[in-house]
């Protein structure tokens, strides 16, 4: 199943599958494939939900509307359960994260060579179709969440309150302010990092296993790839849910005044 002439060895094949289609130099490198699939899937999700929302009836809903409403109600229920406050951003944010991350993860279930090979035929040298196996994508999401955490912390508690939270928290004594600050900063920074790495790690590992399975002879691949794909259905939903859930919990904590 090796794709390119220059990458017929196993390590070359794996390396090829893990390389993004990139333009630019240094920091200003853009992973065209990750961005394209990520934005495309996000737009697909919003387009479908927008269409359904425009045609939504109060009476007996259609099947698609039912499906969309189940998702909306599910996210709304989770938000109502874990977020104690009034903020109209949280629930749509949760829905966007859940569905978008789920769709990006789902790309993992497409056989690893289908789209990259088709793209290679059209002259595209590299193509990574699962955006969530790109650390930049997951970090982009989690840093946005981090920004929201800081923004709402300051908005709800004020700069003074936020500073107090960072400096007077576990040990409420002026002498221990530096220690508190280090501890709380680590807690704060760990949130986006762990969010991004958890999603990235799960999906990257899953993708890698699919690539390794693709190295087997074609007639034996299904023995491993089918159970792994079925197991992976659980992983992609779970990871999307965890990302949404933790975002909601973190933002809920940001809204809590001590």
């Amino acid at each position: 199943m090796a794709a390119q002439g220059e990458a017929l060895t196993a390590s070359g094949y794996i390396q090829h599958h893990l390389t993004n289609l990139a333009v630019g130099e240094g920091f200003w490198t853009w992973h065209i494939d990750s961005l394209l699939f990520s934005v495309g899937l996000g737009a697909l999700f919003l387009w479908i939900f927008y269409k359904v929302g425009q045609k939504a009836t109060v009476g007996v809903p259609g099947k698609l509307q039912c499906f969309v409403e189940i998702l909306v109600e599910f996210v709304d229920g989770v938000v109502k359960e874990s977020f104690h406050g009034r903020n109209p951003v949280i629930a749509p944010l949760g829905l966007t994260i859940f569905v978008w991350v789920f769709l990006m993860n789902t790309m993992d279930l497409i056989p690893v060579d289908f789209i990259p090979h088709a793209a290679a035929q059209m002259g595209v040298p590299y193509l990574k179709i699962v955006p969530t196996t790109d650390l930049n994508i997951t970090l982009g999401l989690s840093l946005s969440v981090f920004f929201l955490i800081v923004y709402y912390s300051i908005k709800v508690k004020g700069i003074k309150g936020f500073t107090k939270e960072l400096t007077l928290q576990p040990f409420n004594h002026w002498a221990l302010i530096p220690i508190n600050f280090v501890l709380e900063s680590v807690t704060l920074i760990a949130k986006p990092i762990s969010l991004a790495l958890r999603l990235f790690g799960n999906l990257y590992a899953g993708e890698l296993i699919f690539i390794l399975i693709a190295l087997l002879p074609w007639w034996s691949q299904f023995v491993l790839s089918v159970p792994w794909a079925i197991f992976h259905i659980l992983v992609i939903v779970l990871q999307a849910f965890i990302f949404m859930m933790l975002t909601i919990v973190y933002l809920s904590m940001a809204h809590e005044d001590h």
Partner: peptide, 29 residues
């Protein structure tokens, strides 16, 4: 790299669009 920024910007736009045009009609219904 800069992919991160592109993702963050599109994320912000998507959340804004979802909050503005997707969530309210569905929730109302």
């Amino acid at each position: 790299n800069a992919t991160l920024l592109g993702q963050a910007i599109s994320f912000a736009l998507f959340v804004w669009f979802c909050m503005k045009f997707v969530w309210p009609p569905l929730m109302n219904a």
